[in-house]
Design a protein around this nucleic acid. Structure first.
Lengths: 206, 206
DNA sequence: GGAAAAATCATGGAAAAAGGGGAGATGCTT
DNA sequence: AAGCATCTCCCCTTTTTCCATGATTTTTCC
């Protein structure tokens, strides 16, 4: 029984590459492709698939959102994230949103096939080894856990608001904002806001 | 006379995709591929090519550096940059380093062919229009031009150093660091360092 | 060689953040 | 009921940033 595969990626060359990699595989059926989240959901209204290869960056919405939505509507579809290098931080969110695994865009045909077949069995597939060997990525995952309020404050700080302005906007006292700020600095182990923002943006928190 | 094309990209799927796009084109000859800058320069020592399709992000060094090096050693080779979306800031540097143009990774076959043929005529090819139409890139195109020194200071600020520490590290006075800081804030039209760093990281400057 | 751009330095004052405490009020879980 | 996390608030001091204004030297480029 052949596995039906659909792909969502805004880079035509990646679509073309994967298509080319898979086109002579007997156990894979290429059911379609999309370059936007919207056209992906449209497709799913009228067609079925077993596996979706999903880029994390899409033009109209993030792969993370799309992943949640697809999983909510079609829990039987397995989603395999597609990732370029500097996006490890998003991967756990992708998995949290229901993805069954991910492969890197420089994966070989064997890895890709392995990934598709593994998730079809209901297992998780991660091509993490490839990532770490190809360049020394600091294994992070030590991204601090911050609360909803802290994230909110962090966003406003990154927008350039002062503690005072944030306090007004959130209807809380400046002292509270200051406390959140201090907690953020402590959680990120950052010397000041500059270094905090850098890490937060890189890690996808902002 | 067929055009010899070589590609350097660390994403095998992109290589595969472009290969697939070009394989049935009579006027294109695929001479080889590399996933690192090192293997690219190795290849060029023993083989020739007319055009190099070059990714801006490579594992061992940036496409910008590789571009300068290749152009210095083989000025007759035309280089066409390959870009994903959020890297507009690097493109002008790529052009400064000798590239003849660039195409986006979501380009169609026609655009890619057009790009290759245009640069072979010694002209510049930019697929910028496609970028702006496909998604509304917010600011980006007006990424401020900052100087080498400013970038250096910006990096240290983002690492969490204070003006004082930066001054010591660069052997300049605190007043100078402060001036650079002010100029950066002005160029980015940022209210404070927090918002500056956010934009700078997103735009790929850090 | 001259203009423009970049890098350097300075003073002084207002505003904001960083760093150190402590503490009460929720609500959720065990 | 006790424990824990979260959100809330406050005080104090020091450090740092932000802002305004002006100037000199070096580099770069035409």
């Amino acid at each position: 029984m052949a596995i039906k595969v659909f792909i969502v990626d805004d880079h035509r060359m990646v679509i073309e590459g994967i298509h080319s990699l898979l086109q002579n595989e007997p156990e894979i059926v290429w059911v379609g492709q999309a370059t936007t989240a919207a056209s992906c959901t449209d497709f799913l209204k009228h067609h079925s698939t077993d596996v979706i290869l999903m880029d994390i960056n899409l033009p109209d919405k993030s792969g993370i959102e799309l992943c949640s939505e697809v999983k909510a509507a079609y829990p039987e579809i397995y989603i395999l994230g597609l990732s370029t290098f500097n996006q490890q931080s998003f991967i756990e969110k992708m998995l949290d949103s229901g993805a069954s695994g991910y492969v890197l865009k420089n994966a070989t045909k064997e890895e890709l096939l392995d990934g598709i077949q593994t998730v079809m069995k209901g297992k998780q597939y991660l091509s993490f080894d490839a990532a770490t060997t190809l360049r020394q990525i600091p294994l992070q995952s030590n991204v601090p856990l911050i609360t909803r309020r802290e994230k909110e404050v962090l966003g406003l700080i990154a927008d350039g608001l002062t503690n005072n302005q944030i306090a007004q906007q959130l209807f809380i006292s400046v002292a509270t904002v200051d406390t959140h700020r201090k907690n953020l600095l402590a959680k990120f182990d950052a010397k000041n806001i500059a270094s905090l923002i850098k890490v937060a943006v890189k890690v996808g928190l902002i």
